[in-house]
Nucleic acid binder design. Sequence first.
DNA 1: TTCTAAATGAGAATGATTCCCATGACGTCC
DNA 2: GGACGTCATGGGAATCATTCTCATTTAGAA
Lengths: 136, 136
Amino acid sequence: MTSTERSATPPRKTRQRAEIRSAVEALDGFATSQDIHDRMRHDGSAVGLATVYRTLAAMATAGELDAIRTPDGQVAYRTCSPGHHHHLVCRTCGRTEEITLPGLEAMVRTIASDHGFGELDHELEFFGICGSCSRP
Amino acid sequence: MTSTERSATPPRKTRQRAEIRSAVEALDGFATSQDIHDRMRHDGSAVGLATVYRTLAAMATAGELDAIRTPDGQVAYRTCSPGHHHHLVCRTCGRTEEITLPGLEAMVRTIASDHGFGELDHELEFFGICGSCSRP
DNA sequence: TTCTAAATGAGAATGATTCCCATGACGTCC
DNA sequence: GGACGTCATGGGAATCATTCTCATTTAGAA
């Protein structure tokens, strides 16, 4: 009842959902629901905070956005290319690069099954300092 | 002023700190500060919740414990062997296996430097369902 | 247009974590 | 062993992200 769920009813098209979508697409890096809500408000768009939370979470579940958890525990979203990949996020400016780690998935699946584990899930994101931020 | 900090003053030995340490060492898998506080209270040990939070965080910073963030955002701690490694955590029972991913670190460092990123840090933990929990 | 279920929004509620600060207890110097 | 300066403690308030509640609005089907 979690991932086997087929999109029973497609989400309705609302003004709010469209505005949230374009706000997220205008981002460079990851942003939290609050960040996006602030930005939208700043840009004159009036959408409730709860709606931003709900919509972003739904979009992430639907695979339209990537969600990561920042080191301090907040959830951040970002549009990204399809296919499995990870992120290299700058701790200072938030700039994000998508990276792929060929072979990692298979390696992990093997190790996990050696330990009897199944239904694996993982979140692997790297946080560092990008080139522009490390130059004094 | 974060990692360059030398242990200026060694922490004092207190009853609370000792009790917290043994409570953590008695664990099988990861547990949150609240879990540990509950367990201690159940075992007749009276230590303030704030103290448990402070002490576990300090122990993790000192490298005496491993801290991970669970999928729902809480911080969990566990004693573990020295050296860099990752964890395979059962979503159902919390059982934890330590795993190493030889080559991953080097691979990531290479990719990161290709992108101009430095001072890398990462948290890579796997959550799955262990053998005993997946058998009906 | 009409109707119904889904979506929205404002604020309350929740829950983990941290802060505040008066009190208590290590460790040190005598 | 005793006095003292500090760091540690604890309990409750405060914070902060996130979720819930529920009355109201609205998309989309009939």
